[in-house]
């Protein structure tokens, strides 16, 4: 909490969502500041992903407010929220399987630079260095030429992270970033997230399903640092 001196990048107030009578998220409020790493903790099915999906506009909230850098964003589409500077990763990785690792990042960069309408330039020759720099940051530079369809699970998570960083976000949403990873991989990734938060002054919000720690049906937000620190 000591990091939260800056004004909050993301402010969530009384966010709620119900699915056909089942209250998935109810009355959740929290804030994340630039340079802060915040975890949403709760067991599977507690509503963390639902919460995330509301934050980036994928599903509509029933009630509550979401402000990004002081601007209300509830009701905007995912692509509009992304343009404002919010990147995210998914619990089940979502990458473009018919493209190479580098092309995944290049596509995001082309979108960021608003060049996707171009019909006659060669996409793979655009933003190569920028893409490689991002890949180097997540430790995927060596695998840049490989097809995403054949990557290992942990590596896909890294590619997603590089893609999520392409628009130089001020807020990064990471949904279960370490699920299915070995302890070492996990520490490395959280180390990286911590570096991003502090080094680039990004606000990082991630979810965690540590059932042994919290046994509650409601997600609670808590500020934390990876164990390795």
């Amino acid at each position: 909490m000591s990091q939260a001196m800056n004004p909050p990048v993301l402010r969530v107030k009384n966010l709620s969502k119900a699915y056909g009578g089942v209250q998935a998220v109810s009355d959740v409020s929290f804030e994340v500041a630039a340079g802060e790493l915040l975890a949403l903790i709760g067991p599977n099915g507690a509503g963390k992903t639902t919460c995330f999906n509301m934050l980036n506009g994928q599903i509509a909230a029933d009630a509550g407010g979401i402000e990004f850098e002081g601007r209300p964003v509830r009701g905007l589409k995912p692509r509009e929220i992304w343009r404002l500077g919010v990147g995210r990763t998914f619990q089940i990785t979502a990458t473009f399987s018919s493209m190479t690792v580098r092309e995944n990042v290049q596509t995001a960069l082309l979108s960021h630079h608003r060049r996707l309408g171009s019909l006659f330039s060669i996409a793979t020759r655009q933003h190569v260095e920028e893409a490689d720099a991002l890949l180097a940051r997540v430790g995927m530079r060596e695998q840049a030429e490989r097809a995403c369809g054949v990557l290992a699970y942990g590596d896909l998570k890294r590619v997603e992270l590089a893609v999520a960083l392409a628009n130089r976000p001020r807020l990064l949403l990471m949904d279960e970033p370490t699920a299915g990873m070995a302890p070492r991989e996990r520490n490395e990734l959280m180390q990286l997230a911590a570096e991003l938060a502090r080094g680039s002054n990004i606000a990082v919000l991630f979810t965690e399903h540590d059932m042994d720690v919290v046994f509650s049906r409601t997600p609670t937000a808590s500020s934390c640092w990876p164990a390795a620190n």
Binding site: W82, R88, A94, T95, F96, H112, A166
Partner: peptide, 10 residues
């Protein structure tokens, strides 16, 4: 390939 991801990168 992934409408979800495409939407999430603008």
């Amino acid at each position: 390939d992934s409408p979800l991801r495409a939407d999430a990168i603008g």
